[in-house]
Every structure is written in C-alpha cells, then in structure tokens.
Design a binder for these strands. Structure first.
Lengths: 243, 243
DNA sequence: GTCTATACAAAGATAGAC
DNA sequence: GTCTATCTTTGTATAGAC
C-alpha cells in the first residue's frame, strides 16, 4: 500500500541540455511528449491527440513517424530501459580496474538510480505502462528487458559467489527485491531536499544494510543467532527494557 | 527499471472463503470485479461494461449501486488500503503485551505483506490506479491513506527514538523506501515457491538488514568506518583479491 | 512531412420499461 | 434491482490535399 506524502508527482531531475542543443527531430519530440504523458496520465488515457498537441503537431501527422500507439509505447519502453542500463554500465565502467564486487554492486545501484531519476519521464513511463501495453509492444521490447535482467543476475551471481551477498534466499529473489526498491523512488524523490549523490548514498545504505541498526534482538541479519546482545547499545537496551 | 521474470501476472494468494460463504451482495460483486480488472488491465481501459460482465449484471445496473466509475475507484482504493491496515494492526495486536519496537516493526512488515498478498486484487489495484483516478476519488480516499501513513510514521518514530532505526536519514525517507519495497512483491510473489511465512521472513530480513552480509569494505552500515576488515571472511577476502 | 476531414468503434452515462 | 435502448463524446486510424 502506498504511503507517500503528496498526491502530486515527484519533482524529477531533468537531463541537462548542453549549450546549443539542437531541437529534437519530430520523431523524438513525439517520444518525449508520449513518455511524459504516459508517466503522468497512464497509457490508455493518453490520447494520440494529446501527444501530438504536446509535440506541436497534429494527430494525423503521428502516423508518418509511427505505425500507431503500440509502436510509440514500445519505443518509450526501450528508451527508458536503455537510459537506465547505460547509466549502470557507465558507472561500473568508471570504476578502477579490478574493483571488488561490492563496489561494482554499489556502482550499479547508483547507476540505476541515476538513470531512473535523470530520465524520469521515460523510466516512470516504463514502470507504469509496461503491463498495460499490447502484447506486440511488450514482445518487441522483450530483448532489451531480458538483457538488463541478465546484467543484474550476473552481477548478483558474482556477489553471491564472493560471499558478499546474503545466501539465505535465491539470487533471483534478491534481484526482484532490489530492483523494486530502486524503482519506487521515481515516485517520490524530490531533488530539492538534497543532492542526488547524498540521496543515492542513503538508498544504497538501506539496500545494502537495511533500515535497522545491528542489534539483532528479534531476527539476526542472516540466521546466525548468538552474537547479538553484545552489540546492543545501552540506550537501545534501556528502550527495550522500558517495553 | 523492471527486471521481473515473466510478463504474466504474479500468482497471488486469495483470501480463503470459509465453508458456506454467502454469495456477496451485488455491490460487493461489482467491487471485486472492478478490483481484479483495474489491477490487470489498468483504470482507463477497464470499462463499466467489462466490470458488469464480470459481476454478472448489465452495465446500466451499475448505476443503481454507484454514482459512476469514480465512486467505484474510490471504494476499491479504500478497500485495498483497509485490508492492509487491518492486517498490520492485527499482527501488532497479536504480539505479547510490551513487545519491543523491533518486534512490532517486524509484525507491521509481515502484516503489510500479508494484506498485500492475500487481497492482491484490491491492493494491486490500489497501487496501480491511485495516480490515475479522478481528483474527486483521490480526495475521497485521502483520509484512509493519511491514517495509514501516520501509523507507519508513529511506529518508525518510536523505533528511531529507541535507537533501533538507522539515524542517518529522515524517518519519512525510511518510510518511503520501506513501503515501496513492501509494495513491489505483489508484482512478482509466487506462492508456489514457498510458504508465505518463509517469504515474509526473507523480505523482512532484506528490509531490516539489507542484501549484503556485513563486511563493510565499501560503505559501512551507518557511516562509522573502521571496524570493517576484521569481519570479512577469508572466502570473501580471497574473492576480492582476485579482483 | 504535415495538414484537414472523416470513418468507425467504443466509452460513460441516462431514461424508462419491467 | 435489473434490464434494454440510446445519447453524446471521444478514441484510433485512414485518405488525400498541400
């Protein structure tokens, strides 16, 4: 269930347009407009007329560039996924040669968040329309999606082999949890409350180490009971004692 | 970005109908049908005719029970939220008197997951249609939503005061992260892969303690560098050394 | 490449019989 | 309470001028 603050859309980072950025070709204008509208109004209730309006053309003109709504949807899905995948690959690639798995995992997390939040229209659109587009559009988008899933499974598999990852559940489950936790912030992230770097560090901390500080009075980090009580601070012990 | 396995819907637990469950009143049939269709096909593309069909009546008859699509949406939102809130309150209430915050937090997490997965049509519908229903429907649903947010903020606030919660970010951010991570499983949970109890324990473990086993070679659990290397297993050290 | 005009289907909602 | 019938609007998509 949702428990966000406001009903309004989160304020998202926008990609910084370089100096003298050339006006996008019409086809791209259509995709940009479609992504924004898909994200904010949903797939079915976004009309081609509205997309055309936002792109500065008339509805009929869309059909010169796309076969129809389905193809637009598939392209938006691809663009959103590719933006995130590219950011992840970039961040991993920027690490020093021979960086450990945990560092690469951290880079991937940051890259995913960066891509999600800096291309929010496309990535939010992806998350929100994926299950509602036609089968044809989903099929067309399949390969891009599979490749990204594989990227994570490979990385997480390495982490598991290295003993970095918790081993009390399948890697696929960890991936599902992880991606889910990383996708949600596009709904509520607000860049006015701090830098992206700080935000990413905070999310990474929660993903990697959880929201509870180590003290294990209920359930141990990884089913290895015993070493708990010693680490509990006196303040905590007091609080628990009071009830 | 999404990286689920299949494009198909996750298989969700259904509430167990007791023996001799009376046939639901027509109004409830409509809500049940609407929730399922909203969750699977989205809000805009679910037609009143389809809802009526699934409820075994004709489209015109819906207007005897509801003002229109908006009111149906608001009722589905309320029902989904209340199912989860009730489950959370029940699990917390079932604890022994004087249970510590961490135990109550764990009960809340399990309750949220239980409600989400045992009333999947309503809860998935909630998550997926919330931002697309009319302002009127959202306003009407507002109080229920606020109450649930408050429930979590109170609980997390207590945990923070007790030193159980990580303190390097605002409680509201932890709540957003937490709820997001707990909402996503409705997209991919598959009861055929294990009991709900096991699943809940696994998710709780990741939410509480993260996906990385404590070894802190990159970022410490809560910005307290130093005590790291000593805890690293030899297997991990070897893996990191290889690169 | 983009426009106008329009065909055709399907939506939410209402009226009134039963 | 539920039905049938229908009004009105709006959607995707196409045709052909410019």
């Amino acid at each position: 269930m949702s428990a966000h603050g406001a009903a309004s859309d989160a304020v998202a980072l926008q990609p910084v347009a370089g100096p003298a950025a050339p006006a996008p070709a019409t086809r791209d204008q259509i995709l940009i407009a479609a992504a924004r509208l898909f994200a904010h109004q949903g797939y079915a209730s976004t009309t081609l007329r509205a997309i055309a309006d936002a792109a500065g053309i008339k509805a009929g003109s869309i059909y010169y560039h796309f076969e129809g709504k389905d193809e637009i949807a598939a392209c938006v899905l691809d663009a959103g996924m590719e933006a995130v995948a590219a950011a992840v690959r970039d961040r991993i690639g920027a690490l020093v040669q021979g960086a450990g798995v945990q560092r690469r995992l951290g880079a991937a997390v940051e890259g995913h968040l960066w891509g999600m939040l800096h291309h929010a229209d496309f990535t939010a659109a992806h998350i929100r329309i994926y299950r509602y587009v036609s089968d044809a559009a989903r099929r067309r988008h399949g390969p891009a999606r599979s490749a990204y899933t594989r990227l994570w499974d490979d990385l997480l598999g390495e982490a598991a082999a290295a003993g970095t990852l918790r081993s009390d559940m399948p890697v696929s489950m960890i991936r599902q949890y992880l991606i889910g936790a990383l996708n949600w912030p596009v709904d509520w992230y607000d860049p006015r409350r701090g830098s992206f770097e700080q935000f990413a560090a905070q999310i990474t901390a929660m993903v990697f180490h959880g929201i509870v500080v180590a003290q294990d009075d209920a359930a141990p980090p990884q089913s290895a009971p015993g070493r708990a009580a010693a680490r509990r601070s006196s303040a905590t012990r007091r609080a628990e004692a009071v009830r």
